[in-house]
Computed example of a mutant assay.
Amino acid sequence: MIQGAFAVYYRELLILRRRLSRLIPSWSVSPLLYLIAFGYAMGKHVAVDGHTYMEFLIPGLIAMSSMTQAFSISSEINIARFYWHIFEEIQAAPVSDLSYVTGEVLAGMTRAFLAIAVILVLGLLFGVVLSLNVWFWLAIVLNSFVFASLAVGLAMLVKSHADQTLLTSFVITPMAFLGGTFFPVENFPAWAQKVIFLLPLTHAATAIRTASFGDMPSLSSLFILAAIGSMFFYISVLFVKKAKD
Rank of each mutant, 00 (worst) to 15 (best):
I2S: 10
Q3H: 02
F6H: 03
A7C: 06
A7T: 08
V8Y: 06
V8E: 07
Y10D: 08
R11A: 09
R11I: 02
L13Q: 05
R17V: 11
R19L: 13
L20M: 15
S21M: 14
R22T: 12
P25T: 00
S26D: 14
S30I: 13
S30H: 09
P31K: 01
P31V: 01
L33E: 01
Y34D: 00
Y34H: 10
Y40H: 14
Y40N: 14
M42C: 14
G43Y: 11
H45Q: 15
V46N: 09
V48S: 11
G50I: 04
Y53S: 02
M54W: 07
M54L: 14
F56C: 04
I58D: 02
I58S: 01
I58T: 00
P59F: 08
G60C: 04
L61E: 04
A63E: 10
M64H: 09
S65C: 00
S66D: 09
I73W: 08
E76F: 15
F82H: 04
H85S: 11
H85Y: 09
E89R: 15
E89S: 13
A92S: 10
A93D: 05
A93Y: 03
P94G: 07
S96T: 10
S96Y: 04
D97I: 00
Y100S: 01
Y100P: 00
Y100I: 05
T102F: 01
E104D: 09
R111G: 02
R111T: 00
A112V: 04
L114Y: 11
A117F: 14
A117P: 08
V121C: 14
L122R: 10
G123V: 07
L125D: 09
L125Y: 12
V128T: 13
V129T: 15
V129L: 15
L130P: 13
L130K: 07
L132R: 12
L132D: 12
L132I: 11
W135Y: 15
W137H: 03
A139W: 05
I140Q: 01
V141W: 11
L142S: 06
L142D: 05
V146A: 02
A151Q: 08
L154Y: 10
M156I: 00
K159Q: 13
D163L: 03
T165M: 12
L166H: 08
S169F: 07
T173A: 10
P174Y: 01
P174Q: 03
A176W: 02
L178Y: 11
G179P: 10
G180S: 02
T181A: 01
F182L: 12
F183D: 05
E186T: 15
E186K: 15
F188V: 06
P189N: 11
Q193F: 05
K194P: 04
V195P: 04
I196F: 14
L199Y: 08
T202A: 05
T202K: 03
T210E: 13
T210D: 13
A211H: 06
G214M: 09
G214H: 08
M216C: 12
S218D: 14
S218N: 15
I224R: 09
A227C: 09
I228S: 00
M231K: 04
F233Y: 14
F233T: 06
Y234H: 07
L238A: 12
L238K: 14
F239K: 10
K241L: 01
K241G: 00
D245G: 11
